[in-house]
Simulated assay, not measured.
Amino acid sequence: MPFDAPSTRPVRSRAAPRAIGLWLLGVAAMVWVMVALGGATRLTGSGLSIMEWAPLSGTLPPLSDAEWQRLYNLYRTIPQYELVNQGFGIEGFKRIFWLEWAHRLWGRLIGLAYALPLAWFWLRGGIPAGYKGRLLLLLVLGGLQGAVGWFMVASGFEADRTTVSPYRLVMHLGLALGLFAALTWTGLSLLRPRPAEAPPATRSIRRQAKAAAWLLVAAMLAGGFVAGNRAGLAYNTFPLMEGQLVPPGYWPMESAWANLTLDVATVQFNHRLLASLAALAALGAAFAGWRRLPPGFARRACLGLGGAVALQYVLGIATVLHAVPVWLGTLHQATAVLVLTAALLALHGLRAPERAS
Rank of each mutant, 00 (worst) to 15 (best):
P2I: 10
P2M: 09
F3P: 13
F3Q: 10
F3L: 14
D4N: 12
D4Y: 11
A5G: 10
P6W: 14
P6N: 09
S7M: 08
R9C: 03
R9W: 06
P10Q: 13
P10S: 13
P10I: 08
V11S: 07
R12F: 14
R12Q: 14
R12W: 05
S13T: 15
S13I: 04
A15Y: 05
A16E: 12
A16F: 03
A16Y: 00
P17D: 02
P17W: 03
P17M: 11
R18E: 00
R18H: 04
A19T: 00
A19R: 04
I20S: 01
I20A: 00
I20P: 00
G21P: 00
G21Q: 01
L22W: 08
W23C: 05
L24Q: 00
L24Y: 00
G26L: 00
G26I: 00
G26P: 03
G26C: 04
V27I: 04
V27H: 02
A28G: 09
A29Q: 06
A29E: 11
M30P: 01
M30I: 02
M30F: 05
V31T: 08
V31F: 09
V31R: 07
V33N: 11
V33F: 12
V33S: 12
V33R: 09
V33M: 13
M34S: 13
M34W: 05
M34A: 13
V35I: 15
L37C: 06
L37D: 05
G38F: 02
G38D: 01
G39V: 04
G39P: 03
A40N: 07
A40K: 13
T41H: 01
T41V: 15
R42C: 12
R42N: 13
L43E: 06
L43N: 11
L43V: 14
L43W: 09
L43G: 08
L43P: 00
T44M: 06
T44C: 07
T44Q: 11
G45P: 05
G45F: 10
S46C: 01
S46G: 04
S46M: 01
G47S: 07
L48H: 08
S49H: 06
S49I: 06
I50R: 02
I50N: 00
I50Q: 05
I50L: 01
M51V: 12
M51K: 14
M51T: 14
E52C: 03
W53P: 03
W53H: 11
A54D: 15
P55A: 11
S57R: 15
G58T: 07
T59S: 12
T59G: 15
T59C: 07
T59H: 10
P61S: 10
P61K: 10
P61N: 12
P62D: 05
P62W: 02
P62L: 06
S64I: 08
S64F: 07
S64Y: 09
S64N: 09
A66K: 06
A66W: 06
E67I: 11
W68D: 03
W68A: 05
Q69Y: 09
Q69G: 03
R70I: 08
R70V: 08
L71R: 15
Y72L: 06
Y72P: 02
Y72W: 11
N73T: 15
Y75L: 04
Y75M: 06
Y75F: 07
R76G: 06
T77C: 02
I78E: 03
I78G: 02
Q80P: 09
Q80E: 07
Q80H: 07
Q80C: 05
